[in-house]
Amino acid sequence: MKNFPLLAGACALFALALPLHATETKSIQIQKFAFAPREITVAPGTTVAWTNRDETPHTISAPDQHFVSKAMDTDDQVEYTFTTEGDFTYFCTLHPFMTGIVHVRK
């Protein structure tokens, strides 16, 4: 009984580790109130990592805001894994003139 949660934990870790090995991470810098690069193309399963280099907080949000990241302070990072093909526009909810797009293609 005592070992069960541990085992379950180990399985969960293993399951998590599999897609991590299969994916790639792409970095986007947030600098001077802009996403750099503003537009990228990645394969499905790619994790995109945004890092805020400004002194002002920023967020990453879907246009309809079904996904809104926490506010990133200077040097904070937010990740999102894109699993399906498509064109994903995003913006900063604090500065809506800041927009970017992730193209996900096989």
């Binding site: 949000s61 526009t89 913006f91 909810t93 604090l94 809506p96 003139f97 927009t99």
Partner: peptide, 8 residues
Amino acid sequence: NFKLGTMT
């Protein structure tokens, strides 16, 4: 009420 590409 911040929306993409517009003012609040």
